[in-house]
Design a protein around this nucleic acid. Structure first.
Lengths: 152, 152
DNA sequence: GCTTGACCTGGAGCATGCTCTAAATCCTAT
DNA sequence: ATAGGATTTAGAGCATGCTCCAGGTCAAGC
């Protein structure tokens, strides 16, 4: 859903393609607020430190944007910040821990699957209630719906 | 998943079936902690006030347990406490607002559906990453995996 | 009566994930 | 040179949903 749009060569905030993007541009392109971008960085959700200008401003490059998008997707499936940091640290540590990365992803996949199944299961109850309400309302006898006991 | 088990006639905390259950028993049967039961009550997640003994202890009856289970299912699909309170108030208000109840449930259903689709979509990315890691690890060339740029 | 454990209330505490503020600094345009 | 807006930082604030604590009450068994 979120895609890092290719830079149209001369966009706002710097036309030099190698200079990197301002935080505002990065936010716009990733769909994440600037606040959140800084928060993620503080929280350790980085694989490589984001570049800085001489004056200390962040400069986002293609790789940074791609990583941020990955973070949003992991977040969207409910992966906690801590776990994403863990994953980032593994990638950051370089080659040799691919088994661990895989294990982390598989564990998360299992969590998401379980959660998905649970939600779908409970959604059925809601659907059932909706059906019942629709039916009763159409039939004009909504009085028969589940209601609290008169007075115990 | 959570079911209100039928009372086996002489259980703990009172054998008179009409006397109602202690909060501990209600917690056990609904799978919710006693803390949470009290919290839900304070938060307005009640359709009818839970009964009390002369001494002020809560007594849970069949209807209370059923309602709590409904609450857990709504929560499990991500319905916020506030919305459940809203729903509880509608039921509590009695007949005549069935359209509103239906609208609330339909709105929630739409939210859940959208969320479900989003999670499933993003889960695909994770699955893809898992596939790639598995393949590379099996092939013994994990070096080729996504890694941070060497130094910008 | 007395002990013991369950229960009561109001309120504090905690985990998570942002979201915002203040004061200072940077940079660009005029 | 300077005004204005964008950005920086550390830290506070907020929303949600529990979770727990202190100090007191209730009730059942001995």
């Amino acid at each position: 859903m979120l895609q890092v749009k290719p830079q149209p060569h001369s966009g706002p905030a710097g036309s030099d393609p190698d200079a990197g993007l301002s935080i505002a541009e990065a936010a716009r392109r990733t769909g994440v607020s600037v606040h959140t971008l800084r928060y993620y960085e503080r929280a350790g959700l980085v694989v490589t430190p984001v570049g800085r200008t001489a004056g200390g401003r962040r400069r986002y490059h293609q790789f940074d944007l791609q990583w941020i998008v990955v973070c949003t997707k992991l977040r969207a499936t409910g992966m906690p910040i801590k776990t994403i940091r863990c994953y980032a640290e593994l990638i950051s540590a370089g080659h040799g821990n691919e088994q661990e990365r895989l294990a982390l992803l598989e564990a998360h996949r299992a969590d998401v699957s379980a959660k998905l199944a649970e939600v779908q299961e409970n959604l059925r109850l809601i659907d059932h209630k909706i059906d019942v309400y629709r039916g009763r309302l159409a039939a004009g006898d909504a009085d028969q719906l589940w209601a609290p006991p008169i007075s115990e």
